[in-house]
Simulated assay, not measured.
Amino acid sequence: MPAHDLPAARLTIHLDAAVVWHHRPAYAELVHRAHRAGLAGASVFRGVTGFGAGDPRRPAHGPKGPCAVVIVDDEPRLRDFLSRAADVLGETSAVAVLDRVRVRAPRACG
């Protein structure tokens, strides 16, 4: 089946997997909110090691290490999501990167 490229954007939020928000991992809250907002897709990738701006408030228990939440959708929708997720991100040392991408998608039949 032929495929075509679609313009889109990718929001990548880098944070420590140990960061919690209201007794829930912050990365899980972000994915939950992305799903609830109807965004096209979200995934969490756990890193083996990494470094960056440290967050002295991270808990001493639970999973530690870097992780990235990657969300793909239209740029305006991602910007809106990022502003609505500010309460979660404001308590972390998270870094958000928004870049334009092209999504390779199968062409619809019909």
Rank of each mutant, 00 (worst) to 15 (best):
M1Q: 11
M1N: 12
P2F: 05
R10L: 11
R10Y: 06
I13R: 05
H14G: 08
D16I: 03
D16L: 11
A17M: 14
A17C: 14
V19S: 03
W21T: 02
W21F: 07
R24Q: 13
P25M: 04
P25G: 02
A26D: 06
A26S: 08
A26I: 03
A28T: 09
V31C: 14
R33V: 00
R33H: 01
R33Q: 05
R36A: 02
R36E: 01
G38L: 08
G41R: 11
G41A: 05
A42M: 01
S43E: 12
S43A: 15
R46I: 12
V48P: 11
T49H: 13
G52L: 13
G52I: 06
G54Y: 08
G54F: 05
R58N: 02
R58S: 01
R58K: 10
P59T: 00
P59W: 00
A60N: 04
K64D: 01
V70H: 07
V70R: 15
I71M: 14
E75R: 08
P76Y: 06
P76F: 02
D80L: 09
L82E: 06
S83F: 02
S83L: 10
R84A: 13
A85D: 04
A85Q: 09
A86Y: 01
D87K: 02
G90Q: 05
G90E: 05
V97N: 13
L98Q: 04
D99H: 15
V101N: 15
R102E: 04
V103F: 02
V103H: 12
R104I: 00
R104K: 03
P106V: 07
R107F: 04
A108V: 01
